[in-house]
């Protein structure tokens, strides 16, 4: 019995040491060089927009690796790694630590084109409805419905959008204001679009990284908006955009190019048409960057640099009694 037990215990010990077959060494490290190499390599293999943005990632490696040294502070390392990521010119690309978050700031590429106070004071007179994520009311003497959609919160549902569209069903047109909408839940995009199409409509294509090469993508797959089986709005819709319209906001803007009764007014969107991933560095910081490309109907990725409006319109900050973008939309809808 004793020898049997001894054999058993020895066997267990041997098995425990066999764990090295399954688990290689611990890679947790605060070494600046190791974290730099890790982040650079992950981006190199999986980021989706090197070619479109004409980014020489090897050259950027040389530039930023020169700033790495042993013993550098965490703040300094963050600035180097965060700086490297901002070279991707993509607000879906962030480095996140417990003391800072890196951003690109695409909205600063154009002027500010949105001020809620001006809209509230001069168009809505502080008299608004709040239906889920939508803030709305009649403007232009009841001729037009204005709907502010500030964020894709994932809370668009049949109740709130039915109410909005039912309320403005007799208007000449609808303004859907997506300015400074940084995006959010993708399912809201299709919940929204489904109310403005009468049949299944091809709105764009999408492809995803499938290999380490900068141009290794899946075949382009079609994206359809399907009509909602219920209340829909088939009159003219002016969708307002600016540089702060990003991610899901840009997806929606891209889709409007395929929907005849929808028109984009304002400034080019910020882009953000790549779906971001998520990952972690050896030192515990997390990151994300774009791994897909949204393509136009002629299968081009160009709108990652911003979906251009059909009608350009900009704020005049010298006159705070009107919103020039809304004014242009009203003109278009009348």
């Amino acid at each position: 019995m004793k020898s049997f037990t001894l054999i058993l215990l020895s066997g267990l010990l041997i098995l425990t040491s066999c764990e090295k077959i399954f688990i290689e060494k611990d890679l947790a490290s605060t070494n600046p060089q190791e974290n730099f190499e890790y982040l650079w390599k992950e981006c190199d293999e999986k980021y989706a927009y090197f070619e479109l943005k004409n980014i020489d990632w090897n050259q950027i490696k040389v530039k930023y690796q020169a700033k790495i040294y042993d013993g550098m502070s965490e703040d300094s390392l963050f600035k180097v790694l965060g700086g490297m990521l901002t070279e991707l010119r993509d607000d879906h690309t962030n480095l996140i630590s417990n003391f800072n978050v890196s951003t690109y700031g695409v909205n600063y590429l154009g002027q500010d084109n949105f001020d809620w106070r001006i809209i509230s004071d001069n168009y809505l007179n502080q008299d608004v409805y709040h239906s889920g994520p939508f803030t709305h009311n009649f403007i232009d003497n009841g001729n037009i419905g204005y709907v502010r959609f500030g964020s894709f919160t994932g809370t668009v549902d049949s109740t709130n959008i039915d109410f909005v569209l039912e309320r403005y069903k007799d208007t000449k047109g609808l303004i859907l204001d997506l300015r400074e909408n940084g995006g959010g839940a993708v399912n809201d995009v299709f919940s929204l679009l489904s109310r403005f199409v009468e049949s299944s409509t091809l709105v764009n294509y999408s492809r995803i990284k499938i290999g380490k090469g900068h141009n290794e993508f899946s075949p382009a797959e079609p994206v359809y908006a399907h009509p909602y089986d219920g209340i829909r709005y088939n009159k003219k819709v002016a969708v307002l955009t600016d540089r702060g319209t990003y991610s899901a906001g840009s997806f929606t803007s891209l889709a409007t190019k395929a929907i005849p009764n929808m028109i984009l007014i304002g400034d080019t969107t910020g882009g953000g048409l790549g779906l971001p991933n998520g990952g972690q560095l050896p030192n515990g910081w997390t990151y994300r960057f774009s791994i897909t490309q949204a393509l136009t109907l002629n299968k081009k990725p160009d709108y990652e640099n911003g979906v251009p409006p059909d009608i350009l319109a900009f704020f005049d900050w010298n006159d705070r009694t009107k919103d020039e973008v809304i004014e242009r939309a009203i003109l278009e809808l009348k």
Partner: peptide, 14 residues
């Protein structure tokens, strides 16, 4: 797969 996340959510076909 390679990219870890899939793209079915943005294809409107989760």
């Amino acid at each position: 797969g390679f990219a870890y996340a899939g793209q079915s959510s943005i294809l409107n076909d989760a």
